[in-house]
């Protein structure tokens, strides 16, 4: 899976969980500020991303995933480490 694929999938998951227009989600979008996720939304989003990518995201790692770009970079790294 390429980084572009991961970005695409991440945007879809965010759109589904936060009920926001996918087109409005960019790499620089902040999950809390721009996309309006509250703390429960953030946990739901992490669970959905874990489910989607079959990768575990620890609570410590999750603290650093502030933007869509952060999240995509983290998942890309996780997947590449496995290969």
């Amino acid at each position: 899976m390429t980084e572009a694929d991961i970005l695409e999938k991440t945007r879809s998951v965010i759109a589904e969980i936060l009920r926001v227009d996918k087109e409005s989600i960019t790499e620089s979008s902040s999950i809390k500020g721009d996309l309006g996720a509250d703390s429960l939304d953030q946990v739901s989003l992490l669970m959905a991303l874990e489910e989607e990518f079959k990768e575990e995201i620890s609570d410590d790692d999750a603290k650093n995933l502030l933007t869509v770009g952060d999240t995509v970079a983290f998942i890309t790294k996780k997947i590449s480490e496995k290969q």
Binding site: E16, I17, S44, M47, A48
Partner: peptide, 8 residues
């Protein structure tokens, strides 16, 4: 029921 509902 959404995916969020099913998770929560």
């Amino acid at each position: 029921l959404s995916r969020v509902d099913c998770m929560q």
